[in-house]
Design a protein around this nucleic acid. Structure first.
Length: 768
DNA sequence: GTAGGGTTAG
């Protein structure tokens, strides 16, 4: 994109003196040359034309990212025109060398209006709006280009109101200004405002019509988009392509194909839209047919096809194409990194990431998300810091991606910093970011802040409601979750299947058996929803926990589909709580058949045996686990202290503060026993001597993390700890005592739910 | 030097 811009300007300056007769290929009206653009080109002497050749060479070097050789050329020029200076500045800006651009700008002997505009638009292109605005306010004269550059900067970065203020203040407006404001509304989802603006005047050009049409498509308002398409007085290839891709992207491929055939201009955009349409529907053969038939391909077309293979986890085919494609760019690399990351092959993802000749924010977001996805959050966070060190600019999407990483590892402080940055950058109240923030606070255990963020989202969608309902449910505030569910319905948002999972799990986590049963059986009548396996699993969990194992089992037998491992897992969990070894064995047997690698199930079953004193069977489970090559996921806990994540495993001796932590745990142990605490050795997996068992319980990872938290986090603030497995019953009891003894709130997230310990009680009501 | 369409993240 950036290069094209330099390219066009360079052609245009050659064109001005008649040496070339290039015609624009597309059908849009020729762009008017701005006043003040012509003068130096009018009287070209031989040396002037030599200067032009130098300038063209500089442009080419800059386009290839060779800033140093461009600078050498510039320095060796016998004479320089203002165009030479501006070309250098603009080249630097396109290559993100902002300081160098600014230095040249300051040094430039006869700065013209264009130099100022080059600087401003360079900053704007890279989202550096404050720098742009500083120059804009300082510049001696402004023309329409200057105003438009600022306007589009605000428009593209979500500052709709500031864009409007600029628009209102402009002394002269051209069609670009009007389109800038229109785009401001469209890009920020304010389609109604765009529509009103559009209706307020008559002489819109084809760009405006296309923009409005694109806005409707973005909102998936296909009928409105089509109406615009049918009504527009003039269509260019962009109009056709926008409409074709609109149909293609909602998988209306027959209509897309019809328009494609009908369209008078089938350029590379149109072909690529068709490829991508079939790719999105997973119809790879059809996509490949279009891809092979394309008269010309560019990197985007190749990328679309590669993305198709990578989305279907056919990384072999993706790689084959990647290796033969003639024009790889950052996106091609990003597509490969993403593809590998999403198919769980983080090693290859990392290999490609490391090999990339250039990276952008998407590359970083992709690899970070890759690590976050497989739970390697430490590495994700390390990469985030590397990214900042690399000077990669944070945009809304990267921030959103980092937010979800923070959420996964419950890095609340870091998440809060991200929140601050989002607000500062003006991304605060949007639904997309709002939902990510909401999820982050929920997963980090700060349900109050989550609720505040939720209240601040101006346009709550079904995802916002689902997130907060599930959030309250997981924190054990079932009544609040159900109240929100009622408000949601009052607000006119239709509950979907995800909502109902949240609602049912709220009932399950709170023990509201009757109410849950009612919701479950009225889902179809009330909201037209069919229960899926997740809903059944919630119900089996709900009944099972309440001790109604028989009902749970018969509900499962009457399911309209085969139970999956998660459903059996709910039954196994309930069997363990209520000591029904026979049912537990049956459930475990089924799970082993379905997921022979599920280490958690071996542990659950082994615990079930151990709990009823069947040490022999518990031992057999361990052997079976070892023989089948399944390894138990080691339990670990982590806690964030002063922006740093500290991780602990059972009996950990690697932490620098180990000595203090163990000594403190001894003190706590003494105090707890004085209060009546007895360690429940029953639930330790291993078959060992009583004393040793107690020793192991004492140093479970969550205990170490919480002790460290009490020692380092100032009093008055809650201790937030995360555990990757379910918290053990002994730790759970201990934390109730500890919360009372030290007078602290302890918030523990295990893989299942949240526990808020306060004054000797837990929010789960010992029901988890 | 300023505006609209197709690929990659979320």
């Amino acid at each position: 994109m950036r290069c094209t811009r330099i390219h066009v300007s360079c052609l245009r300056s050659l064109q001005t003196k008649g040496s070339s007769n290039l015609q624009r290929v597309n059908h849009s009206p020729p762009r008017k040359a701005t006043a003040g653009r012509q003068p130096d080109a009018m009287t070209f002497s031989l040396t002037e034309s030599d200067i032009v050749k130098w300038n063209v060479a500089i442009t080419n070097h800059m386009r290839n990212g060779q800033c140093e050789s461009a600078m050498r050329l510039f320095n060796s020029m016998p004479r320089r025109s203002s165009v030479s200076w501006n070309t250098m500045i603009s080249g630097y800006l396109s290559n993100n060398r902002f300081d160098l651009a600014h230095q040249l700008f300051v040094k430039m002997p006869n700065r013209d209006l264009v130099s100022w505009n080059v600087m401003i638009s360079g900053y704007v292109r890279n989202g550096k709006l404050r720098d742009a605005r500083l120059l804009f306010d300082k510049m001696p004269d402004r023309d329409t280009v200057s105003w438009n550059a600022m306007l589009s900067g605000y428009a593209q970065n979500g500052y709709v109101d500031e864009a409007r203020r600029i628009f209102d203040k402009m002394p002269n407006k051209n069609s670009i200004s009007w389109n800038g404001l229109l785009a401001a509304y469209v890009h920020n989802g304010r389609i109604e405002d765009a529509q009103r603006l559009f209706e307020s005047k008559a002489d819109w050009d084809v760009v405006s019509w296309n923009c409005l049409m694109g806005g409707y498509l973005k909102k998936r308002r296909l009928v409105d988009a089509r109406r615009v398409f049918d009504q527009m007085p003039l269509r260019d290839e962009v109009s056709w392509n926008t409409m074709i891709s609109g149909y293609a992207q909602i998988s209306e491929l027959s209509e897309a194909k019809r328009l494609f055939v009908e369209s008078p201009v089938k350029d590379v955009y149109a072909w690529t839209s068709m490829v991508s349409g079939y790719v999105q529907k997973g119809m790879l053969e059809e996509a490949r047919k279009y891809f092979d038939k394309m008269p010309e391909k560019n990197s985007v077309s190749w990328n679309a096809m590669i993305a198709g293979y990578s989305q279907c986890k056919r990384m072999d085919l993706a790689r084959e194409l990647f290796e033969v494609m003639p024009c790889r760019n950052v996106s091609s690399w990003n597509t490969m990194v993403t593809g590998y990351a999403e198919s769980g092959d983080i090693a290859h993802a990392r290999e490609f990431f490391n090999m990339m000749p250039q990276r952008d924010c998407i590359s970083w977001a992709a690899i970070i998300a890759g690590y976050a996805h497989i739970g390697h959050s430490e590495e994700a966070l390390r990469l985030f810091l590397d990214m900042k060190r690399d000077g990669e600019r944070l945009n809304m999407s990267t921030l959103t991606c980092i937010l979800s990483t923070c959420a996964n590892i419950a890095a609340l402080e870091l998440g809060k910093q991200m929140h601050g940055r989002l607000v500062k950058a003006g991304f605060g109240s949007g639904c997309y970011v709002g939902n990510a923030l909401l999820a982050m606070y929920c997963k980090c255990g700060d349900i109050e802040e989550a609720h505040d963020v939720f209240k601040g989202i101006s346009e709550k969608d079904v995802v916002s409601w689902n997130t907060i309902i599930a959030g309250f449910a997981r924190h054990g505030f079932g009544k609040e979750a159900l109240n929100l569910f009622e408000s949601m319905k009052r607000a006119g948002i239709k509950p979907d299947d995800v909502t109902m999972v949240g609602v049912l799990s709220a009932c399950s986590h709170t023990g509201l058996v009757e109410r849950g049963t009612e919701y479950f059986y009225s889902m179809g009548d009330d909201y037209g929803l069919t229960a899926n396996s997740k809903h059944y699993t919630c119900m089996i969990d709900l009944l099972g926990r309440a001790g109604r194992l028989y009902d749970a089992h018969s509900l499962m037998k009457n399911m309209p589909f085969e139970p999956d491992a998660a459903t059996w897992g709910a039954l196994l969990g309930a069997s363990r709580i209520h000591g029904d070894t026979e049912l537990g064995e049956k459930a475990a047997e089924m799970i082993f058949k379905m997921e022979p690698d599920n280490a958690g199930m071996y542990v659950l079953l082994s615990n079930l045996y151990a709990g009823s004193g069947r040490w022999g069977d518990a031992g057999k489970m361990r052997l079976k686990m070892r023989d089948s090559g399944v390894r138990k996921v080691p339990g670990y806990s982590w806690i964030e202290v002063q922006n740093k994540i500290h991780m602990f495993s059972v009996g950990d001796s690697t932490h620098p503060e180990c000595g203090r932590i163990y000594a403190y745990l001894e003190d706590l142990d003494f105090l707890m026993k004085k209060e009546g605490y007895v360690s429940s050795t029953k639930l330790v997996l291993h078959d060992v001597e009583e004393e040793e068992k107690e020793h192991m319980l004492k140093y479970h990872s969550e205990k170490l993390a919480i002790a460290f938290g009490i020692l380092t986090i100032p009093s008055g603030r809650p201790i937030r700890v995360i555990k990757n497995l379910r918290v053990c019953a002994d730790c759970h009891t201990a934390f109730k005592y500890i919360s009372k003894i030290v007078g602290r709130v302890i918030i523990l997230r295990d893989c299942h739910r949240f526990h808020h310990f306060k004054d000797g009680f837990c929010s789960c009501g010992d029901y988890w």
